[in-house]
């Protein structure tokens, strides 16, 4: 039941994408998302889709891993599409009913948004599937470093995220344990109405919360005992290595962005 969580689901491998620096991957993703909203030119969309397919092939991760992640997102995407059908009132009417009218503009607008969301989700999962959570947070911390000068606590943010990721499996294990213990006492999580099933989870969440606070306290003491005093004067055990392939990838995505701007302004 809990195996469906995809956060931090890393699939080990030796592909080109696996070997890339997490900073480069994050930069590419950022460029990809930002410029995707710049232009609606078909040629640009074809380029974006080609890039997604290219990355997908280079990562060499079986398609079924994406399906898991996309299942929930698909709901959101469908919902946005349908919302656009009803809300956007542009172009000639396509379908007129006594209750509502659907315009062609709504269909194209909805399709654009759905397509954009879909390739963004695929791109983003490509990154989480090929990067360990540690590398991801490390990359984030390094990329955010310039904001540190503006008073953003970059080290603390990245550190919090790393600890949260570290404890996800532990908490899942614990949840499973509590569920089993409650089931042994006659609780039922799989039958009955939705409301009943939600109610059955209350006795699971409460011990989980109590235990988590205890954990947080213990962890804070352990960290202090080990001399943790924030990011200042700290050295790093993990080092990131920027390779030519990283430069190449970022350049590729920058060119894609430039093409997006070009199609927007001149075509």
């Amino acid at each position: 039941m809990l195996d469906n969580v995809i956060i931090g689901q890393y699939i080990p491998g030796k592909s080109l994408i696996h070997k890339m620096d997490p900073r480069a991957k994050l930069l590419c993703l950022l460029l990809f998302i930002v410029f995707l909203f710049v232009s609606r030119h078909p040629a640009f969309f074809i380029l974006a889709i080609s890039l997604t397919v290219l990355t997908f092939i280079a990562a060499g991760i079986p398609f079924r891993f994406y399906l898991k992640g996309i299942r929930i997102i698909a709901l959101i995407i469908s919902f946005t599409f349908i919302l656009h059908l009803f809300v956007t009132r542009e172009g000639p009417p396509l379908l007129e009913t006594p209750l509502f009218t659907i315009y062609t503009g709504g269909v194209t607008e909805g399709a654009f948004i759905a397509l954009r969301l879909l390739i963004i989700v695929i791109m983003a999962s490509l990154i989480t599937l090929t990067t360990t959570p540690v590398d991801l947070t490390d990359g984030l911390e390094k990329l955010m470093k310039p904001f540190g000068k503006l008073g953003v606590p970059t080290h603390e943010l990245a550190f919090m995220m790393a600890i949260a990721l570290r404890f996800i499996p532990t908490l899942l294990e614990e949840t499973a344990k509590i569920i089993k213990a409650q089931m042994a006492r006659g609780a039922n999580f799989t039958h009955g109405s939705l409301w009943r099933r939600i109610k059955a989870f209350v006795p699971v969440l409460i011990p989980l919360f109590v235990q988590s606070f205890k954990r947080a306290e213990d962890l804070a003491v352990a960290m202090e005992a080990r001399g943790y005093a924030g990011g200042h004067g700290r050295t790093k055990f993990r080092i990131l290595q920027w390779k030519p392939i990283d430069t190449a990838a970022v350049t590729l995505f920058a060119v894609y962005g430039a093409f997006g701007v070009y199609t927007r302004l001149f075509i």
Partner: peptide
Amino acid sequence: FQNPDNQMVAPTVEDDVAFGLENAGVPY
């Protein structure tokens, strides 16, 4: 400390062993 689950800070054994050294600013 007592609880093995509540004192590992880092996501892998080697990262955790390094934690105290990182805090002390030991060179890489």
